[in-house]
Amino acid sequence: MKKYRGIFIKNENEIGLLREANRIVASILDVLGEHVRPGVRTMHFEELAQKLCQEHGVKPAFQGYYGYPFALCCSVNEEVVHGFPSERILNEGDIVSFDMGVVYEGFYGDSARTFPVGKVSDEATRLMDVTRESLMKGIAQAKPGNSLYDISVAVQRHVESNGFQVVRRFVGHGIGRALHEKPEVPNFVPPGITGVPLKPGMVLAIEPMVTVGTYEVEILDDNWTAVTRDRKLSAHFEHSVAITNDGCEILSLSPGAVR
């Protein structure tokens, strides 16, 4: 493993391990999505995630990370990220975001998706669609010859042109032997900063968090759950991707995922 500007450059073997870690994450998210329906406790998804980690022989990446108590981040409606699974019941019209990570042979997988609960509003559908689309537009810029902020520009432009906002407080990140590595991958362009050139062997977790109203967030009393300040809806999609000589490979894509 080499370093470039403090960023770990992965070799083919390391990317292979990251590919398997993220394949497992994608398969877990597929199963969680199949269980989303009105009347389900959000703790059910935590129990399912724990069971699936055991079946795959992997360790939950988030549990114990800076004291986070669960395997799964489960965020409903105005909850942006880091929501706790609980006895809360999903209701018709809710949207629920799952952020899931695992450790496989010392390497991390990390991906997130937002799901509708039954029939949801047109606004919620548009929010999820635009967030997913912004992720894919960012990924399309993740290639050698571009800079990190080409990803950021693509995400921000698509989100804001559709009337939504990008959360500033939380950003994407490098990923490998650690869950969070350099570089940070913002979904907006910080003013006056030049982006890091993208090189083959970089592995990034790109994760737009998009809101209907303000992009400002508050942290609840559990010291983890981030909610929109105006309590309007938020959606979250994430893929881990490897920069290759030909462009990039989405490591956390699965047949069940919506592209």
Rank of each mutant, 00 (worst) to 15 (best):
N77C: 03
T114Q: 04
H180Q: 07
G67W: 13
G145I: 10
G145T: 06
A142F: 04
S147V: 10
V117A: 08
G172S: 12
Y108K: 01
P190M: 07
H158Q: 02
A178F: 11
K137Y: 09
S111G: 12
G172L: 12
P186Y: 05
G106C: 07
G64L: 05
V153C: 02
R88C: 00
N77W: 03
S111D: 13
F170A: 05
V185C: 11
S121N: 04
V96N: 08
G176K: 03
C74T: 15
K119N: 12
E92M: 07
A112I: 00
S97G: 14
H173D: 09
E55K: 15
R113W: 06
E133Y: 05
E184C: 02
V120H: 00
Q54V: 08
R177N: 08
F70V: 02
V189N: 02
P69E: 12
I139D: 07
G67N: 14
Y104H: 13
P144H: 03
N187E: 07
L72M: 06
H56D: 01
V58Q: 11
P190T: 11
F188C: 03
H56F: 15
K59A: 08
S161E: 15
G172E: 13
S97I: 01
R168G: 06
G83C: 04
Q156Y: 06
T131R: 01
E184F: 13
E92V: 07
I95G: 01
F62H: 14
S161F: 01
G176S: 09
M128N: 03
S121Q: 07
H82I: 06
V171W: 05
K143F: 03
R126I: 00
G57Y: 13
E133P: 05
M136F: 15
Y65E: 11
F115S: 00
G138M: 05
Q141F: 02
P69A: 12
F107Y: 15
T194W: 03
N91D: 07
V155W: 06
Y104T: 01
G64F: 08
V153P: 00
V196S: 06
S147P: 02
G195I: 10
C73F: 14
S147T: 15
A112F: 04
V120T: 06
S75P: 10
Y68F: 15
G176H: 08
V153E: 14
M100S: 06
Q63R: 15
G106A: 06
E87T: 10
E87C: 01
A142N: 11
T194M: 08
V166Y: 03
F84Y: 15
G172Y: 10
M136G: 02
L90W: 08
F164Y: 15
D129L: 14
G192M: 10
V167W: 11
G195Y: 12
A112G: 13
R157N: 12
N91H: 12
C73V: 09
Q165L: 00
A142I: 06
E55C: 01
L72R: 01
P183T: 10
G83N: 05
L179V: 09
P85S: 10
V167D: 09
V96C: 05
A142L: 14
S86L: 02
Q63Y: 09
V103R: 14
T114L: 08
L135K: 05
T114P: 10
Y65R: 12
G118R: 05
G57A: 11
S152P: 12
I151F: 14
V103H: 02
P186A: 06
